[in-house]
């Protein structure tokens, strides 16, 4: 990664700011007073041991969980919670730790669902499937084909995703998120359960998306070597609390982080 880019990003504007977020379910405190901000165009990683509240954090960002307290500053407005539909409309896409694809649909259809919010034809025109409706379908198909080319999914275009191997499913899921042309892409353990080669492929896709499509990336990952390699900044969570943040080098040397987490996992 070039130095120029890093500088660029450190001066980048904040796309989303989370202030003092707390979240609890019944008696369980999942997040306590967590604050951080994500800058436009960076690869931002959230790390921490299992149960640290990383996925909950992503769920708060895209509105699936409503924080008990705290503020989210997004799109020039301070709000106390997000709505999933609003998040999707404002360009936040995500993938899931346990693959959440539409298993009965083909790869192509799964990617096409990423375009749903951009399709504007009304029900009557859809039923007619003629003229503008037809053109719209073809246009979005073209966009989706670009994603298919980018992720090398041509061979499985018509295959129902339920029958695909795990690594490919993860890739299709990334494709669906990319098809939304997101501004912010939330990736929940995109490389879990993959072998080294698949991890390299995935890292390449993530970085290319970041460089070429200018997508801001928020990433949860357990593989420290991957995290240290591809991310610009990192926040560390432990038991729902933020225990450190900064550039990869800083995290590597942070005493609190090493005690809580790094010292044990880093290979």
């Amino acid at each position: 990664m070039s130095l120029e880019k890093i500088q660029n990003i450190s001066y980048g504007k904040n796309v989303i700011e989370l202030k003092n977020i707390s979240l609890s379910f019944g008696g369980v405190q999942a997040l306590t007073d967590v604050s951080f901000e994500v800058k436009r165009g960076e690869v931002f990683a959230i790390i921490g041991p299992n149960g640290a509240g990383k996925s909950s954090m992503l769920n708060v960002i895209n509105g699936f969980y409503k924080p008990t307290s705290g503020k989210i500053n997004f799109a020039g407005q301070e709000r106390s919670q997000m709505e999933p539909e609003f998040a999707a409309k404002s360009g936040i896409a995500r993938t899931f730790q346990n693959i959440a694809l539409f298993k009965g649909m083909s790869t192509l259809d799964n990617l096409m669902t990423g375009r749903l919010l951009k399709q504007k034809q009304n029900l009557f025109m859809q039923a007619l499937y003629y003229g503008p409706a037809e053109k719209e379908e073809s246009f979005h198909r073209e966009q989706v084909e670009k994603v298919i080319d980018f992720l090398d999914l041509q061979m499985i275009r018509r295959t129902p995703v339920g029958s695909l191997p795990y690594g490919l499913q993860k890739r299709v899921e990334l494709g669906r998120a990319l098809a939304m042309e997101p501004e912010i892409l939330l990736l929940d353990e995109p490389m879990a359960g993959m072998n080294v080669e698949e991890k390299q492929d995935m890292s390449r896709f993530v970085l290319t998306a970041n460089h070429e499509l200018k997508t801001t990336i928020v990433l949860i990952e357990h593989d420290m070597s991957v995290v240290m390699d591809i991310s610009d900044r990192i926040v560390v969570l432990d038991y729902g609390k933020k225990i450190g943040s900064g550039k990869p080098q800083e995290i590597r040397n942070d005493k609190a982080v090493i005690d809580a987490y790094l010292g044990i996992t880093d290979e």
Binding site: N62, F64, P84, E85, A87, A88, K89, A93, R94, F96, A100, L101, F102, K103, G104, M105, D109, M112, T113, G114, L116, L117, Q119, Q121, L123, Q126, A127, Y129, A133, E137, R176, M180
Partner: peptide
């Protein structure tokens, strides 16, 4: 085979994920 059909199938296959893609 249009938008609405894909929305239906998305809800059928996994409603939570469908909600999150909008």
């Amino acid at each position: 085979r249009s938008k609405i059909g894909r929305s239906w199938m998305a809800i059928r296959d996994m409603d939570i994920a469908a909600e999150i893609i909008g």
